[in-house]
Design a protein around this nucleic acid. Structure first.
Lengths: 184, 184
DNA sequence: GCTTAACATGTAATTAATTACATGTATATA
DNA sequence: TATATACATGTAATTAATTACATGTTAAGC
């Protein structure tokens, strides 16, 4: 998708919290931010180079052990300004959700199609697992109130994600009932 | 995004209902399927060429008026088989929703951040409008029961989309209340 | 008869993103 | 001390998708 390069803002946002290496940034997509966005290191390293060329970040070289060099990136004033602008400017385009299962459903014409029940069951399994995972994240990450106070946005979107998955699971259950009735 | 080329299946799915031109296919993204997926004609025409090379579709040339040639595409047996396989094979990867607003929220640290209320209000306006639009689609497209019976999958996903937006709107309202309380 | 909007089909340039290729270091553990 | 895993950083090839470029026809309204 040729979209508006949101990765740059994620990098700026993460570096705004503390200096990180490219490797650290890559790892952060396995955890927190990874629940909401994905990126690989092959995308991150070139982006870091571009951001540094533009003056939004700088780096200092650290040496671990004998000779392993790592680059610790810092955000600059230009970078913090760009991050602030991105958050402030408004988000008037609703990102269309591209859900492959939903797309497949579009081409199912009859409520008696035997594949329908199979597909719904699979999605129910997947979304139930996802919901369990998200609830687990909620309790581990936001177990105490100080965490919520210090990362309020993160708390909100995790809570939003839990609600969204709950809705999805309930919809699947409800639809399965209706479908089974139609097929009986 | 280098993903699994879902456009080919949308084209096959639409051609499975009736023969269409590239222009017709492009237009269909302004309506029905457009609620759930997007594609431009610059993506559609090359894809049609590839599908024909692969033997999944064929075309016949129609002439409108004096000399305007249009290509009416038909699905082949290979195409219907490919479509059937895609629907049948299972959808084990949950597509991660990339919502820019959600992403921005991640970088809001404090519940007292004055931008929070502004951002939530904007999203409430957008998602309320979206919800109204979807409900309108529901009544116009699925006004009578025969439409539901003949396009059950489409009915399901539209109903799912209405529910999803309802949840989003409610979540925004609820969060706004909480945030205003925190900022007071 | 003129003009505009819709019909109709393509290609080119650019950007975003994934997968694969490529290399080397440090640390923990068996 | 060997070995596996995690740390660390890049590039190349490919695919997907958007935006822009490019051209011509038909039908409706004035």
């Amino acid at each position: 998708m040729a979209q508006k390069n949101k990765l740059q803002f994620i990098i700026l946002g993460l570096l705004n919290q503390r200096p990180l290496t490219g490797y650290d940034l890559t790892k952060s997509f396995d955890n927190e931010i990874g629940e909401f966005w994905q990126a690989q290191h092959s995308q991150i390293y070139p982006q870091l180079k571009r951001l540094e060329e533009q003056g939004a970040i700088t780096h200092e070289v650290m040496v671990s052990g004998e000779k392993l060099e790592k680059k610790l990136y810092h955000i600059t004033d230009l970078g913090t300004a760009r991050l602030r602008d991105w958050i402030t400017v408004g988000t008037p385009e609703l990102t269309a959700t591209k859900d492959e299962f939903i797309l497949k459903l579009y081409f199912i014409r009859k409520s008696t199609d035997p594949r329908l029940s199979v597909m719904l069951h699979e999605q129910l399994r997947l979304h139930t697992a996802k919901l369990t995972h998200l609830k687990g994240r909620m309790t581990t990450v936001f177990g105490d109130d100080q965490q919520i106070a210090d990362n309020y946005g993160h708390y909100l979107i995790l809570q939003h994600a839990v609600g969204r998955e709950s809705y999805y699971v309930n919809w699947l259950k409800q639809t399965l009932k209706t479908v089974k009735h139609a097929q009986a």
